[in-house]
Amino acid sequence: MDFTRPGGIVVDGVGLTFHPPRRDSVVALENVDLTVSPGEFVCVVGASGSGKSTLLRLLDGLITPTTGTITAGGEPVTGPSPDRAMVFQSDNLMPWSTVVDNVAYGLVLGGMKRARARQIATTQLERVGLADAARLYPRQLSGGMRQRVNIARALAVDPQVLLLDEPFAALDAQTREIMSAELLRIWSADRKTVVFITHQIDEAVFLADRVVVLSARPGTVREIVPVDFARPRDLSLKRTPEFGRVVDHIWSLIEDEVRGSLGLH
């Protein structure tokens, strides 16, 4: 695999230390190595405090690592770029913009004429099944619909890499199941590179080609678990014994740390 092609990501020896004012510095990530192939779907799991979200912000370029380097498509990551789009846990839609203008946001920022951007946004809204909501304001939508708008906004800029930070964590369990199946359906259309952060192990195994397990404090790669289930996958996969075995294996890697963080042994 050529990780320097568009959509490929190379994380090489990356560490990040925070220096909060008047408090001890925190080593959030240490010596993280990770390569993602173009078009691959990678999920990152780990106990709270393992630096999952920090890793994603580093990949997007919102923060810069203390040590090591990150390249995307062969280019060093020095800041946010239209090649990568971020989907945050809370939908973060602009409350003052209609749904279609929210989806067009990244395109308009990039200098595209509003009319053209709205056309593209409308197409993306159709993809996520929300064409009828175009003229509504975010507050008029349910949480699941808002998160679909959020994803459509990221897809609209046609990025090479999609970075998702626990995008379904705020949704109820049933909505979350349907949304992850929807995400796979949308992803399978053009197979962009995806890095997906979650604390739901079954969600990670259902979605990913590989699951990256981070250990906590400092966060570092504990193990990378390949997931070989055939695609397209549907939700019935989750009820098979093979699926359960992969989930159990990953859980066993994380369990001690979750217990530790709770003061249990």
């Binding site: 946010p80 789009a85 602009m94």
Partner: peptide
């Protein structure tokens, strides 16, 4: 969070001011 979102879409200081 909205400001960070704007920045992740490449907004500079002025664009953050204007759009958020």
């Amino acid at each position: 969070a909205l400001i960070e979102t704007a920045r992740s879409y490449g907004a500079g200081r002025l664009q953050v001011l204007r759009t958020v």
